[in-house]
């Protein structure tokens, strides 16, 4: 592909990616009358900056954000720990029925959460976990197929010599795992952290089904809860939605290379 064409394609594509965000940012700064005006204007007239603060008066966004942060952090930590353990067992330990487990992991990858949500709901109801954060966190502590594959891949790439040296020094399997191998796969750990955090942060289905108390909701559910029945307030909901994007956007800007690396790692195993 000629370079000039490449630039053209990429810049045009990037504009398509980003302009809608800009348009919705402007929508979030319109008054309701301006928002429903025909024909629509691109720029707000006037700029209704108070939309962004009004959202905070209408709903406890701080509480939602804290809930989302707690859930996503614990989910990410749990997934990294458990997936690393399982991936380690698959890559570096003498696990019986290793092949069967790998196949099982592939199979669960094919089982969408939405299909299993009904029995999961019944299970968590029996555990007394409804309207707690546990159904949103505990599954991540039981390792995810994506995490297992990613970690297994990374552990396979670690040279044997480190482990052998440590074993001669009398280190047990846990010590080898935590002290020798984990530090060597830090990039993969970071990748899995940001990926899990991102998917937990944006989840809609599970929090919709499991959380009901107003003080336990997550950000996406809180945003959806602003949609009025009788009143037009989409400009406010747009403001709320964009606000819920901010934290993840900041995380992405900081950790872009881990997002990309994670995606690439997933691609290479194909």
């Amino acid at each position: 592909m000629p370079k000039r064409l490449a630039y053209l394609v990429l810049v045009a594509g990037a504009a398509v990616m980003l302009l809608p965000f800009l348009a919705s940012l402007f929508n979030s700064l319109k008054t309701y009358a301006d928002y429903i005006a025909v024909p629509p204007g691109f720029l707000p007239d006037p700029f209704e900056w108070s939309n962004w603060t009004q959202v905070w008066e209408r709903a406890p966004f701080g509480v939602y954000a804290a809930n989302s942060l707690l859930i996503a952090s614990l989910a990410a930590f749990g997934n990294v720990l458990s997936s690393a353990m399982v991936g380690h067992a698959l890559a570096r330990m003498k696990l019986p029925a290793r092949g069967a487990l790998l196949t099982a992991a592939l199979a669960t990858m094919m089982l969408p959460t939405v299909v299993t949500i009904i029995p999961s709901f019944i299970l968590f109801r029996e555990f007394g976990w409804l309207d707690t954060f546990l159904p949103l966190i505990v599954p991540f502590w039981l390792a995810t197929p994506f995490g297992i594959f990613l970690m297994r891949q990374s552990f396979l790439a670690v040279p044997k010599e480190f482990e052998e040296a440590a074993t001669i020094d009398g280190a047990g399997p846990w010590r080898v795992f935590t002290r020798i191998h984990l530090p060597l796969v830090k990039p993969a750990l970071a990748t899995l952290t940001v990926f899990t955090f991102m998917s937990s942060w944006g989840a809609v289905l599970e929090p919709t089904v499991y959380l009901t108390s107003p003080d336990k909701l997550t950000l996406p559910i809180g945003v959806m809860g602003l949609r009025g029945q009788f009143v037009g307030n989409d400009q406010l909901v747009t403001a709320a939605a964009l606000m819920s994007l901010l934290p993840i956007l900041v995380l992405f800007l900081i950790a872009q290379r881990y997002f990309v690396r994670g995606a690439m790692a997933a691609g290479l195993k194909g």
Binding site: G13, A14, S24, W201, G202, P220, V237, I248, F252, V260
Partner: peptide, 16 residues
Amino acid sequence: AYFVPVVSSWVVIAYV
């Protein structure tokens, strides 16, 4: 730029 929609949740995407 291409990753911004990727990291956005569907609730955000719906309004965008």
